[in-house]
Amino acid sequence: MCLRGHGIEIAQLLDLYVDISPRRALTPPLKYTDYIRSGFRTYELHERMTPKIAKLLRGQWLAHVVVYGYRPYDPARGKFTFTRLFCGAAGPRHAE
């Protein structure tokens, strides 16, 4: 935001584009709230917050809740499983 404030544009590198951040995809919705709050704080700090941006940030949180609901879906089995619900994609951890 600071660079754009000085008229400097930033190019999007298409080779580095991802549909969803793997780091955030498995973040529980309550913890994801912290991530969204940091977005609010950043826009407010730079005096760029608008009602449209606030609406987009809230929509992002809601979209995450919906997508997070599909976390128990196991694509290998083609169905929802309790294992993925409680253990995620990594599966159960066994004591060694």
Rank of each mutant, 00 (worst) to 15 (best):
M1H: 10
C2N: 06
C2W: 03
L3R: 09
L3D: 08
R4T: 04
G5F: 00
H6Q: 13
H6Y: 10
H6K: 14
H6W: 07
H6F: 09
I8N: 00
I8M: 07
I8Y: 13
E9D: 12
I10S: 07
Q12D: 08
L13N: 15
L14P: 00
D15Q: 14
L16I: 02
Y17P: 00
D19R: 11
D19Q: 10
S21G: 09
S21A: 13
P22Q: 10
R23L: 07
A25Y: 07
L26R: 10
L26D: 15
T27W: 03
P28Q: 09
P29Y: 11
P29E: 11
Y32Q: 13
Y32R: 13
Y32V: 00
T33Q: 08
Y35D: 10
Y35F: 15
R37W: 02
R37F: 02
S38C: 04
G39V: 01
G39Q: 07
F40Y: 15
F40T: 06
R41H: 11
R41C: 04
T42Q: 12
T42A: 15
T42G: 01
Y43W: 03
E44W: 00
E44R: 14
L45I: 02
L45K: 14
H46A: 01
E47F: 01
E47Q: 15
R48L: 15
M49I: 13
M49K: 10
M49R: 06
T50Q: 09
P51H: 05
P51Y: 03
P51S: 07
P51R: 10
P51N: 05
P51G: 08
K52V: 11
K52A: 15
K52E: 15
K52L: 12
I53E: 02
A54T: 07
A54H: 03
A54Y: 02
A54E: 15
A54W: 01
L57H: 02
G59A: 05
G59V: 01
W61V: 02
W61Q: 13
L62W: 10
A63P: 00
H64M: 11
H64T: 10
H64C: 08
V65Q: 14
V65A: 08
V65C: 15
V65Y: 05
V67Q: 12
V67F: 05
Y68T: 05
G69S: 02
G69C: 04
G69Y: 02
G69N: 09
R71D: 02
R71I: 09
R71N: 04
R71L: 15
R71E: 07
R71K: 15
P72K: 04
P72G: 07
P72R: 04
D74I: 01
D74H: 01
P75C: 03
G78I: 09
G78R: 04
F80L: 03
F82S: 10
F82H: 05
R84N: 11
L85I: 00
L85F: 13
G88N: 08
G88P: 04
G88R: 07
G88L: 05
A90I: 06
G91N: 03
P92K: 09
P92M: 07
P92V: 08
R93Q: 13
R93L: 11
H94N: 03
A95T: 10
A95G: 00
E96A: 12
